[in-house]
C-alpha cells in the first residue's frame, strides 16, 4: 500500500452516516465494484461523476456512524477515494476501515483548514496533511502501536492468516 496521496478535497459535515455512504437498497451485494457507483449517492448526488480517483474525503465528527456495514468503507475504497480525513470516526467504521485497508486520519484541525476543491497531500506514515492551496500543514492523531502494526501488515486478513498458520504449525 502506498502511503502518499495527492487529491482534491471533498468536504462534508458532521455525522455522515453509513445510510448515506451506501444506502441499504444496494446491500444485496458486497462487491466494491458494484457498490462504488452508489457511494455517497444520498448525501451528494453526482459525487461519483465529479470525483477523480485519488480524491480525499474530509468530514466533521462521527464519520461513518450508524450501521456496521463494511460495505461503507468498501464503497469508498471502491470509488477510488485515497483516504478519509475526519474530526472523528464512529467506532465500527474506524475498525472496518483499518481492517479492509482504507486509509483514515483523525485530525480536527485539518477539517477546519480545508475547503472543498483544495488540493491536499497526505503522508500516511507520518500522519502529515498538507493543504497545497494554502500551504498549511496539519498533524493527525497517531494510532496506538497495535493498530499501526495492523495497518502495516495490510489489515486484519493477513494478520489472522498468519495466526492460523502459526497455530497449525504448533499443532503438528
Amino acid at each position: 500500500m502506498t502511503d502518499r496521496f495527492l487529491g482534491k478535497a471533498w468536504v462534508y459535515g458532521d455525522n455522515v452516516d453509513t445510510d448515506v455512504i451506501i444506502p441499504a437498497r444496494y446491500l444485496s451485494t458486497s462487491d466494491p465494484a458494484e457498490l462504488a457507483p452508489h457511494c455517497l449517492e444520498d448525501l451528494d448526488p453526482g459525487f461519483m461523476e465529479r470525483m477523480a480517483p485519488g480524491d480525499i474525503l474530509v468530514a466533521g465528527s462521527n464519520f461513518g456512524c450508524g450501521s456496521s456495514r463494511e460495505h461503507a468503507p468498501l464503497a469508498i475504497k471502491g470509488a477510488g477515494v485515497s483516504c478519509v480525513i475526519a474530526a472523528s470516526f464512529a467506532r465500527i467504521f474506524f475498525r472496518n476501515a483499518l481492517n479492509i485497508g482504507l486509509p483514515i486520519l483523525e485530525c480536527p484541525e485539518a477539517v477546519k483548514g480545508i475547503r472543498s476543491g483544495q488540493r491536499i497531500e497526505v503522508n500516511l506514515a507520518e500522519g502529515r496533511i498538507l493543504n497545497l492551496d494554502t500551504g498549511e500543514v496539519f498533524s493527525a492523531t497517531p494510532f496506538p502501536p497495535f493498530l499501526r502494526e495492523l495497518v502495516a501488515r495490510g489489515g486484519l486478513v493477513p494478520t489472522v492468516k498468519a495466526r492460523l498458520e502459526e497455530k497449525r504449525r504448533n499443532a503438528r
Binding site: 456496521s68 463494511e70 465500527i92 475498525r95 472496518n96 479492509i100 486484519l156 494478520t159 489472522v160 495466526r163
Partner: peptide
Amino acid sequence: TGVGSTDLAAAWALGETW
C-alpha cells in the same frame, strides 16, 4: 458489541477479538 464482517470472520476463525 457490533463489528464489521472482517472482524466477525476473524472471531469465527480464532474465537477471539481485540
